[in-house]
Nucleic acid binder design. Structure first.
Lengths: 267, 267
DNA sequence: CCCTGTGGTGTTATATTATCAACACTGGTG
DNA sequence: CACCAGTGTTGATAATATAACACCACAGGG
């Protein structure tokens, strides 16, 4: 819970596409930890190459070590590479931005994206950490993941990203039930203003959710027709990615989804 | 030095392309740490998504978090993508396997590779951690890096990979002098049997080495002609990658290298 | 049925870590 | 020019998380 390792690694969350370099005091302020402690932690992580310090500006950034680790994992389990063409197809079919995320500890890690070609599109921050409660992807994963994950999420503080974000425990639980009844999750402007999300769960070998694939559409552009089309496309993408992961959908889920698609406007 | 964070992160070094999944006892044995300690560390790193535990086999592997971190870094500082075409050219020009590495804490992290098309070629493990003292890349980086790095390497234990590996302090220092005199480094079978390495340093904005680019040739195939050709190609690749990094070669180095190429058989 | 291996879990002495303070340095401002 | 607010860094001590040890439950061979 409050181990030094966890605290040190939590510092990595603050590095993003928008702020790839951060100073010591800045990191200490955001993490709420002491400057000296943060300094030692960054020093330790720099020894391992997870972060590196710019010699002149003294700013810290993610190090070459993360590239190496990603290469090792991607060589052994090529998930990003496998997802990319499926996301491309999903984005082309729907005309919108698609992305896939995997359960990564306490949060959902955005692993691969394919942006829409349209001028007006949902653009998302590469490698963003997605909360479970405020995103369609998060709810899709949560609904089919291990129950312990749901407990952990419900017992942790939840940030209200917009006025539509579900933060109450009971609201989230009923929403989870809706997701289970549908086989996919839907979320309008709960994470970002004017963004509508449709997501379907990804499964691992054990039949538990290990992530989610999602389509993000500008809210004003989400018509009933577009919605049906997107649901079908997302479910198919999820099926293909799950297969690519060597995963297995739980009993009943495949039939539920198949019935959903048959009854829809797409034949 | 012996902080818990460093010890925990050192566990990540044991995951490789060949052994992407490791058990708890195995990791404890290799790291020389207590099982209970390793268990807690892995738990902490799992919370952050750096590692994940297979539900059925209970084995640990690198987690989705490393993919996310790599994406964040690569989006902000696209080095791998920039290196790839240059490595392709280097590999094509020499007909051998090329790779680039960056200084990553106490070791050199292999970031990008391009394997030779020949049936008999040097094949290297993706994302391998390269020691400074036993590889051409390591010696090239060491010769032009911050002096503190050289001190740290010289004061740490050095493994003898082959019977040609330099482990003695004085031998390494004289070799470093040779590298500085040449502007590139050469190493025959010091890291791997039957592998000849030629490497040139990469520089950052401050003019200090931040990595190296290298060509690995089967020793028996390294003729005087091939050697001249490879030296020129590696130096040119290093120049281009340094430029792509926004780096600056130190005073004198550019002239030294230019003179080297002019006097060589390639006009 | 032992025996050896595995992953995992307690408990206490110990050693690391958090905290606070002060330091040197920088850049901007009155 | 001195001041101020900011930075990164380094010591000291007090508090606490950690390491070590033993132990447990389980799985697979011999």
């Amino acid at each position: 819970m409050s181990s030094t390792v966890t605290k040190a690694l939590s510092l990595l969350e603050f590095f993003s596409e928008d702020e790839p370099e951060l100073g010591l005091s800045d990191l200490a302020r955001r993490s709420g930890m002491d400057k000296a402690a943060v300094h030692r932690m960054l020093g330790s992580m720099a020894e391992s190459g997870l972060v590196e310090q710019q010699a002149d500006s003294r700013l810290y950034r993610l190090g070459a070590g993360v590239l190496r680790l990603a290469r090792v994992r991607e060589t052994a389990f090529p998930v990003s590479a496998m997802m990319q063409p499926i996301l491309l197809r999903l984005s082309t079919e729907t005309g919108e931005t698609a992305h896939a995320s995997l359960i990564s500890g306490r949060a959902l890690a955005n692993i691969a994206t394919c942006e829409s070609k349209k001028g007006s599109r949902v653009s998302l921050v590469a490698g963003e950490v997605l909360p479970y409660h405020s995103t369609a992807s998060g709810l899709a994963a949560l609904a089919y993941a291990d129950d312990k994950l749901l407990d952990r999420v419900l017992s942790a503080p939840r940030e209200a990203r917009t006025r539509f974000t579900l933060t109450e425990r009971d609201d989230i639980l009923t929403r989870i039930e809706v997701v289970r009844a549908n086989g996919f999750s839907e979320s309008d402007q709960a994470h970002e203003e004017d963004v509508h999300g449709l997501a379907a769960p990804l499964f691992d070998r054990s039949g538990r959710a290990c992530g989610a694939v999602s389509v993000s559409t500008p809210s004003h552009r989400m018509t009933a027709e577009q919605r049906q089309l997107s649901i079908a496309a997302v479910l198919r993408a999820a099926e293909d990615i799950t297969a690519g992961l060597g995963g297995q959908r739980p009993r009943g889920y495949a039939d539920q989804v198949a019935g959903l698609l048959a009854s829809g406007p797409r034949d």
